[in-house]
Amino acid sequence: MKLVVVKPFAGLARGDVITDKDRIDAILKGENALHVVRVTTQGGAAGGGK
């Protein structure tokens, strides 16, 4: 899973991609969780495969 920024925060711009697992966890647990969307690839945590 990765995150894509939809509203700028903490020096990140809209469209920036976050792939570091520790940073993802911290963002999702914090006040900026609403400023990102989760993106999975085929076969990722949300399924996507057959």
Rank of each mutant, 00 (worst) to 15 (best):
M1E: 07
K2M: 13
K2S: 12
K2Q: 15
K2F: 06
K2V: 12
L3Y: 08
L3E: 08
L3I: 12
V6I: 15
K7H: 06
K7D: 10
F9H: 06
L12H: 14
L12G: 00
G15P: 11
G15R: 15
G15L: 11
G15H: 13
G15I: 10
D16W: 03
D16I: 06
D16R: 08
V17W: 01
V17F: 03
V17H: 05
V17S: 11
I18P: 13
I18K: 12
I18D: 13
D20I: 03
D20Q: 14
D25F: 06
A26W: 05
A26N: 11
I27N: 02
I27S: 03
I27K: 03
K29G: 06
G30D: 01
G30E: 02
N32V: 01
N32Y: 08
N32D: 12
N32G: 00
A33R: 15
L34H: 15
L34S: 15
L34Q: 14
H35E: 02
V36D: 02
V37N: 01
V37D: 02
V39K: 01
T40F: 09
T41K: 08
Q42R: 12
G43E: 04
G43K: 02
G43V: 05
G44A: 05
G44I: 02
A45M: 07
A46C: 06
G47C: 03
G48P: 06
G49W: 02
G49F: 06
